[in-house]
Design a protein around this nucleic acid. Sequence first.
DNA 1: ATAATATTGTTGTAAATGCAACATATTTTT
DNA 2: AAAAATATGTTGCATTTACAACAATATTAT
Lengths: 154, 154
Amino acid sequence: MKECKLHYTDSIHYELEQTSRLMKKLTNQLFAKLEIGLTMDEYAALDTVSVNAGICQRDLAKLILRDRANTGRILDSLEQKGFITRFIDTKNNRLVRKMGITEIGLKELDMINKKVKEYLEGVTKKVNPADVEKVQEALRSFRIELEKTVEFNI
Amino acid sequence: MKECKLHYTDSIHYELEQTSRLMKKLTNQLFAKLEIGLTMDEYAALDTVSVNAGICQRDLAKLILRDRANTGRILDSLEQKGFITRFIDTKNNRLVRKMGITEIGLKELDMINKKVKEYLEGVTKKVNPADVEKVQEALRSFRIELEKTVEFNI
DNA sequence: ATAATATTGTTGTAAATGCAACATATTTTT
DNA sequence: AAAAATATGTTGCATTTACAACAATATTAT
């Protein structure tokens, strides 16, 4: 106990990074196993679009925490698969590409949401059923604070 | 409130992913600002090596949750910068490459640890000083459970 | 009015990452 | 003893990602 918590590997930041890395791996494995025809990121984007109908690309980029370039590419893929439609509209007098989820996309999303929820709840239940909510809430306030601190020019 | 929590974007998994993504961005910005001559990942690896003297590459890969290929590449860079030394040894009668941190590496690590700790504590303090420990502990047990669930063949 | 700045999306490029395949060597199975 | 499986590290490749540069348009400043 010579050095108390001076290591990065003892910090909450590191713990967060490691846990997230595992979580991502688990989700990838789940998607492969269930033979889901979307990547994790396309799925997250689709879910975000479904609850933000008519959002434009840049605003979506801010929500999914990617840059505009990659957001565009993810949307290309979702559009090509027929899960979203894109259309030109205006926002503050500027031309933007807005989007919405399609019938097919909504059906696919609901299906995946059910499958994924069922499977992933198995994980959280095993952990600490009572505290999951609390941790999620704490993570959220942590994230809100991070959003104030991090420079995010998209 | 038609659908209660059926969205991925309402799940703790998504919250974790988003928070981690922001955290990574913040750390990258910090490293750029402080002109630290290591990537975040090299730093995490170096810190891990420093508390696991004589570890072999594969075991390190398991700790930092990367595959063997990238672990090797990270170590190439750390070795080239003179922060670690690598040497051949045996483990279970097999030849392996073990490693340790150098004097220079230790000095650099201590310096970064101090800088980073100071800066990052600013973030956690603003959030919820009392609960940080609790969240970190919950994350840890969550991670431990994930480690049981995720297939990780390295 | 003209210039400077800001918003939005796309393209190009370099770096990071994971996965599969390979090469060696050792252990286990038959 | 031979064959199959395992452990370890490296190389090659395809995917993902971020960042910078660009194009087009609209707003703001001079």
